[in-house]
Amino acid sequence: MSFGQCQSIKSLMSGFDRPWFIAGGWAIDLFIGKGTREHKDIEFAIFRKDQIYLKNYLKEWEFKKVVNGKFHAWESEFLELPIHEIHTLNMLSGDKIEILLNETKENNWIFRRDLRISYPLYSIGSINETGIPYLKPEIVLLYKAKNTREIDHQDFIKIKDYLDKKKKKWLENALEIHEPEHKWLRFLR
């Protein structure tokens, strides 16, 4: 499996001069350095404060915000929490992308589901050898911990041994705050 979809996003975002990161299962594969499974979609994350800049950057795309699990046209209003998910459609190519809005405060990334959990903003992502930025796996796994599906559990099992002590400890602490009964905790201790 190649990272062709991720390379397409990298090309698309080449002129976007704000931070962005591949998210979800693709981020885990980018961290490991190889494809581990088929992916039904692709998503990337940006900071909430950059949403209007992104909308102007992707002007030939149609945008929909997700509100209570339903799609609604996104005009030009600034999206606040709890809205965090945007879907885009390129009207010419038919390409679809999911965009996830991420919270920041001062020099920290803030977990939108529990504002007590943070990560230093300068280190929430990495870049693979071909220059594709992606969210750190411990952050991706924290998002996957809510309503964990079998595919999310398999992602965790595949990656847990690639995480160094610092990454495991951060994920363990975040899960203890957010999902204190989560089954992944026994693998992290």
Rank of each mutant, 00 (worst) to 15 (best):
R113I: 07
F78R: 02
D114L: 00
T104A: 12
L135G: 00
L89V: 13
R113F: 09
I110A: 00
N147E: 13
R113C: 06
N108K: 14
Y134T: 04
I151V: 14
I86F: 00
I97E: 00
D95V: 14
I127E: 10
S93L: 14
R116K: 14
E77G: 08
E98Y: 07
R149M: 06
K105Y: 10
D152C: 07
K146G: 10
L101W: 06
E80T: 11
K144Q: 08
D152R: 01
L100V: 15
K70N: 08
N128A: 07
Y119W: 12
Y134V: 03
L101Y: 06
T130W: 01
R116N: 13
L135I: 15
D152L: 03
E106L: 12
I86H: 00
S118Y: 05
Y143D: 08
L121R: 09
N90F: 06
P120I: 02
E75I: 06
A73G: 12
E103F: 05
G125V: 04
T130G: 02
P137S: 15
L89Y: 15
E103K: 00
L79I: 11
S93T: 15
W74V: 01
A73E: 15
D95H: 14
H72Q: 15
E138H: 10
A145K: 00
L101H: 02
I124H: 02
L141Y: 04
Y134N: 03
A145W: 00
E85S: 08
N147F: 09
K70C: 05
L92W: 08
M91P: 01
L141I: 11
Y119F: 14
G94A: 07
A73D: 15
Y143W: 14
K105P: 00
W74H: 07
A145S: 15
